[in-house]
Design a protein around this nucleic acid. Structure first.
Lengths: 335, 335
DNA sequence: TTGAAAGCGCTAACAG
DNA sequence: CTGTTAGCGCTTTCAA
């Protein structure tokens, strides 16, 4: 741990033979001066390895070049891709991200929000594990802009969600297009908005009489649902669209155990593109990717615009999902 | 987004009828003054909802109450628990964490480190996905303290790792104690230090002739290894200790497909306690937990001490693993 | 016991 | 075109 003295703008100014003010303007491309002076200052700064102290800069009422990411998704399944996207969108602008996990604890949430405000964050992005639930903190009266990504915000907030309906529609159409006719949808609890939306889209495409089975988000439920569907007499489904990848994996495993071949006899499509589940399934799962990284990128861009006080239209923005084709559904395995 | 004026220490001082200097000292429990004055200032501050501006505070050479977490573990499997622990250890001290994912890109790493230094972080914690690899950035000449957690640091650094040997030993002993005698170890590539260490511990307990099979970290390898071990004539193993949970899941599935009962005929133990894998396995996996959250907590404590300039002994600290008993191994399922 | 004043490193009016 | 000056909000000598 080296305690090398940091170069201050003062040093740059001295070496370049100008005043601190000129140096500041030169480096920030503000004010007016001969191109020669500007160059000289910039060169000296580079030569000395000058890096402005972000704290000092922030103190003068500028931006702090930090934003906070608040999440209650401890497991990180949704938050991590979002975070990656945010980071990607912000790193070039020199903005760093405070990650704050708040579980579902309002007190902890408040502590983190206060800490962020103390640190003068330029904005806060809220995210979570459910699109139809809010974080246990009120972010609506904050002195900084807020963007909601994959979590519910107040009516007139800037909110980003993935387009569950479109994703489900594409998956179902794919099944139909590959010649399947008896489609079933095995999904999670009907208390989830995304379950309702995906199911509606499914039936819209597959027909209102196509069965929808609600259960839990688990492999076990996938097994059980297969037992139900294949329990009685035929005709059995020739395609199953699942509410998430875990259910889909359960379904595929259960079908294999019944000697029903996937994808020859039955096509299966999942939802989430959770790599660890989708890739390990035999055969690997075709599944709907919610594009969470892009959602994060967009959230980053928006919070940046808001931080710069550029106007941003409030409302809910739906980002499209994308079908990732592997081998559990019929047809070509290439996109 | 409300632009409410923030209360400054100046306001507190004015209302409490003292000078800013006194107010500062009162609030920070420094200097000397009548207890009455101190109380009065503190009460006013509380009443006004005063929160000190962290930027301004940091500028006066104090600490910034921020630390950076650098990781190349995009998938987050190891980083998230570590992060949770760090956050838990730091939140009470008012310290916030910058999360920086740098993939394996040295340039990106430098960008993030520079950004952190510009923001005057009090310290940096480095973490990753492999204990025996370093991040693609040199952190050894930084003006702030660094702690390495679950990633390799320089010789004389402060480093935290989990005790692979002890974890493997406990798992193996458990197998032995429950009466198993023909143990096998199915694990990852021998190029991983943790593979070597776990295998050594396994053989130390199970006997030098107990087979160790190296492959990839995948379910597929678990299947294949079972095919190898159960391919020829008996006697077959009656217990398998796996290098991670994915392999273990593959093993359990493969055994079920061969109608070998787990845990009646064969006990299986995994490594990592990756909830999503361990819990979904049928039967649920007994597995070694690396206690990454505690590792994070410890990293947080250490970086805090270093930031406060308290002396910290350099060197590698091994934190114990803990066996999490579910149902895939014999014996009681309770701890 | 308290307060005035200097200054952390930088930016932004305003002069020159 | 460039420099002087005044802060940003807080902590910290140093006097009173």
């Amino acid at each position: 741990m080296i305690k090398a003295e940091r170069i201050r703008i003062y040093d740059v100014a001295r070496v370049a033979g100008v005043s601190v003010a000129t140096a500041s303007k030169a480096l920030n491309d503000t004010g007016r001066m001969t191109e020669e002076t500007r160059r000289r200052v910039k060169d000296t700064a580079a030569a000395l390895g000058f890096r402005p102290n972000a704290m000092a800069r922030a103190l003068t009422g500028q931006r702090s070049f930090t934003v906070g990411l608040l999440t209650n998704d401890t497991y990180g399944r949704f938050t991590l891709p979002v975070m990656a996207g945010i980071s990607e969108a912000l790193v070039d602008e020199g903005v760093s991200v405070f990650l704050c996990g708040i579980e579902d604890d309002p007190a902890l949430g408040k502590v983190h929000v206060d800490a962020m405000l103390d640190k003068q964050v330029d904005g806060i992005i809220a995210t979570g594990k459910r699109v139809d639930r809010s974080l246990p903190v009120d972010l609506s009266q904050l002195p900084v802009p807020v963007v909601y990504a994959f979590t519910q915000g107040p009516k007139d907030a800037v909110t980003l969600v993935s387009d569950d309906g479109q994703g489900a529609r594409e998956a179902t159409e794919r099944l139909l297009k590959s010649g399947r006719r008896r489609l079933a949808h095995i999904t999670g609890p009907a208390s989830f908005a995304s379950v309702v939306e995906r199911a509606a889209a499914f039936q819209e495409v597959a027909g209102a009489d196509a069965p929808v089975l609600n259960g839990t988000w688990s492999e076990a439920w996938g097994h059980e649902a297969v037992a139900q569907l294949w329990g009685g007499k035929g005709p059995y489904p020739d395609a199953v669209f699942c509410g998430n990848d875990q259910i889909a994996r359960g379904v595929v495993d259960a079908l294999r155990e019944r000697d029903v071949s996937v994808p020859r006899e039955v096509s299966v499509i999942g939802f989430d593109n959770w790599e660890i589940v989708a890739a390990a399934t035999r055969p690997p799962l075709t599944t709907v990717d919610m594009n969470l990284k892009e959602l994060g990128r967009e959230a980053g861009r928006l919070i940046l615009e808001l931080a710069k006080r550029e106007p941003v239209e409030p409302g809910i923005r739906k980002l499209p999902c994308k079908l990732v084709v592997r081998q559990s559904c019929g047809g070509e395995s290439a996109e």
